[in-house]
């Protein structure tokens, strides 16, 4: 495992599978009454959130705590970050406090990359979403979820639908899924596909109805209504009609296909309520898996070894030590 996780492109197939397999063991920990392992006892994980985020921050917080790390949350609101302190000074502060890992969410693309490569900190850096660049742990939890339902992803067909242009989730998923051998189709109006997308390891389509019957999983991306003010699409209604996933469209999917969404959803925009709440939807499970995947990432980055922590049923040390 490398020292940082900045981009899904940082992971080769073996590293990605190691994280996913480790996450499987972490997931089993979550199903036990005592959800804690001592693996990162004495290590400090800082959640540095320059951008509002509830689910990702809570997910990383839960992941760190279940591994017994000391977790410090540092959010923009009400902190020095909202008083104009620079990323550099914040980083130097964290370094002085002895953070072992910094989980960073930032509105500027590349901010985690700067933190990792500028020499400001020695700690491991985990990208928890940077601007319109990447969100690699989201892609990992999505892949983890898909593997639970679809098995090996080699040759599986995944449709990612919506505002690809502004989506860090789409970028990380396209890269990771390609590494894992899946066939990704990005579906969006032409205005919401990035320039140069033809060089990505994906195919693209403007036609959702034609893509759905050939998909094993469909991942809906959040679309901000404000985008229509910048002429990306004419209206929310037109967007929903052409690219929203409703019950009729869900009927085009194969029986085994699953419906995913990274959240937060806008019901009635990119996904209808009945689809979001349907049996095909694994949206809530994605959240559960997110904790397991982030535990695996923190564990592998900080423990410096490829071995999984002691979480098997016949070894109760983890639970008892956590109780002590």
């Amino acid at each position: 495992m490398k020292r940082h996780l900045l981009s899904a492109a940082d992971l080769d197939r073996d590293e990605a599978l190691l994280i996913l397999d480790t996450a499987g063991e972490m997931r089993s920990l979550a199903d036990r009454p005592i959800k804690k392992s001592p693996a990162l006892r004495g290590r400090t994980v800082v959640n540095l959130f320059f951008e509002d985020s509830t689910r990702t921050r809570i997910s990383f917080e839960a992941a760190g705590k279940r591994l017994s790390a000391d977790v410090i949350n540092f959010s923009a609101k009400g902190s020095s970050l909202s008083k104009g302190e620079s990323l550099k000074d914040t980083a130097l502060t964290l370094e002085a406090m002895g953070a072992d890992a910094v989980v960073i969410r930032h509105s500027a693309s590349g901010a985690p990359h700067r933190l990792a490569n500028s020499g400001w900190v020695r700690s491991s850096v985990v990208n928890a979403g940077d601007g319109t660049h990447e969100h690699p742990t989201q892609a990992l939890l999505d892949a983890f979820t898909m593997r639970r339902h679809l098995g090996d992803l080699d040759g599986r067909r995944i449709a990612i639908v919506g505002d690809v242009l502004h989506s860090r989730v789409a970028r990380s998923n396209a890269l990771l899924l390609a590494t894992l051998g899946a066939e990704v189709t990005l579906v969006a109006p032409p205005t919401l596909l990035p320039v140069g997308v033809e060089t990505w390891p994906v195919t693209t389509s403007y036609d959702l109805d034609a893509t759905l019957p050939k998909s094993d999983a469909v991942m809906m991306l959040r679309v901000q209504r404000e985008r229509m003010n910048a002429a990306f699409f004419p209206s929310a209604r037109e967007y929903s009609r052409r690219y929203g996933l409703d019950a009729r469209r869900m009927g085009l999917l194969d029986a085994h296909a699953i419906v995913m969404h990274p959240g937060p959803m806008i019901r009635g925009m990119e996904i209808s309520a009945d689809v979001a709440d349907s049996e095909r939807s694994v949206i809530v499970e994605q959240v559960t898996n997110g904790v397991a995947v982030r535990m695996a990432v923190l564990y592998l980055l900080l423990s410096g070894s490829g071995e999984a922590p002691e979480t098997s049923e016949n070894n109760t040390t983890a639970g008892t030590e956590a109780l002590a």
Partner: peptide, 18 residues
């Protein structure tokens, strides 16, 4: 706009200057 609009701006997630 942050950088030249092209293949790389899409990958880096930086708004393009075409």
């Amino acid at each position: 706009a942050q950088m030249n609009e092209g293949e790389l701006s899409g990958v880096l997630g930086l708004a393009g200057w075409p």
